[in-house]
């Protein structure tokens, strides 16, 4: 779609604009504009690259293990426990353990990479649930008002009296010994717990956006030509509330990962022997004062991923809505 309509088959846009001696900018959608703004932000690009890299690792780690490039993350090798990583050059290093081994002689590199998979799952799955539930309920509450809205607001009031992490602690501590808590090393329970604690925030965000949009002319226009409520919500409201929702998702992912790491660090998250960065720190903490790498490496991974997601989130926020603050 060119800005200047050309007479068919005779002149291209560029030629015509040259004729007219004006610059014609190739027309871009709002989303493309945001994408270019994002690419100009160096920190955001670095963050994005790191996130993509970790995602690739998370997807490929089962194949790497199957092909034998990586050791089994659960295989114990007690004679070779607490090997130092090769860069320390100490006599307690083995070239077969490039990142060293933990106190049960398990390969730290392999455990770190498998943890990446857990972290990515914990980042993306609950946030998808939060997105679906929060956006649906928020749209309905904001658009219809009435009792849906009333119930949502009352639930929010109560949930806001709970600090997220405390609530997560209680849910995890009580339910992790049930059947639900045993599925996939407790992963499913973590998904559910994080989603339960956080959907309200998303619903509230969407509700607020809808409230401010639904009195605008374009919604009124849609309603006046007889568009049904569902169509208005899906085709008109949804695309217009997407920017803040995307930003909230971008910050929701690292905070879900952090919640898992914290819970696992205190021994009420992922169940050992499944590896996760939090579990690794928890297990290594006992021997921390004598050999630090089994703890420092997962801590470093958490820091890198957190920073990457924050840079990306900040970049997305600036790109999608330059007026949003802080």
């Amino acid at each position: 779609m060119a800005t200047v309509t050309t007479t068919p088959g005779k002149q291209t846009t560029a030629e015509r604009s040259a004729d007219l001696n004006v610059l014609v900018r190739k027309q871009r959608s709002l989303w493309q504009d945001a994408w270019y703004r994002l690419l100009r932000n160096r920190a955001a690009v670095v963050g994005m690259v790191i996130v993509v890299l970790f995602m690739i690792l998370a997807v490929t780690v089962p194949f790497m293990t199957q092909l034998g490039w990586l050791k089994d993350p659960l295989k114990q090798d007690t004679p070779n426990s607490l090997m130092e990583p090769i860069w320390t050059g100490s006599k307690f290093t083995l070239s077969t353990y490039p990142f060293g081994s933990d106190q049960l002689g398990r390969d730290i590199l392999s455990r770190l990479l498998w943890s990446t998979q857990i972290s990515m799952l914990v980042g993306f799955v609950p946030v998808s649930i939060i997105f679906l539930v929060g956006v649906t309920i928020g749209l309905a509450a904001g658009y219809y008002g009435g009792w849906v809205d009333q119930i949502l607001m009352r639930i929010t009031d109560v949930i806001y009296a709970f600090p997220d992490l405390l609530f997560l602690f209680i849910i995890m501590a009580t339910l992790r010994n049930t059947a639900l808590g045993d599925i996939q090393g407790g992963l499913l329970l973590i998904f559910v717990a994080i989603a339960v604690v956080n959907w309200v925030g998303m619903a509230r965000l969407v509700r607020g956006q809808v409230l401010s949009l639904k009195e605008r002319e374009f919604i009124e226009a849609a309603r006046s030509i007889g568009a049904p409520a569902r169509r208005i919500m899906v085709r008109h409201l949804f695309p217009n509330i997407l920017a803040p929702v995307i930003v909230s998702v971008a910050f929701g992912i690292p905070s879900a990962m952090l919640a898992e790491a914290t819970l696992s660090f205190f021994g009420i998250g992922i169940k050992p022997p499944t590896a996760s960065w939090g579990v690794m720190i928890n297990e290594g903490f006992v021997v921390f004062s004598t050999s630090a790498w089994p703890v420092l490496l997962p801590a470093l991974c958490i820091s890198i991923v957190m920073l990457a997601f924050t840079f990306l989130g900040d970049g997305l926020r600036d790109a999608l809505d330059p007026r949003m603050k802080i």
Partner: peptide, 10 residues
């Protein structure tokens, strides 16, 4: 950004 328990470890 960096969680407090990670900072504590460092």
């Amino acid at each position: 950004t960096i969680p407090s328990f990670v900072i504590s470890i460092f």
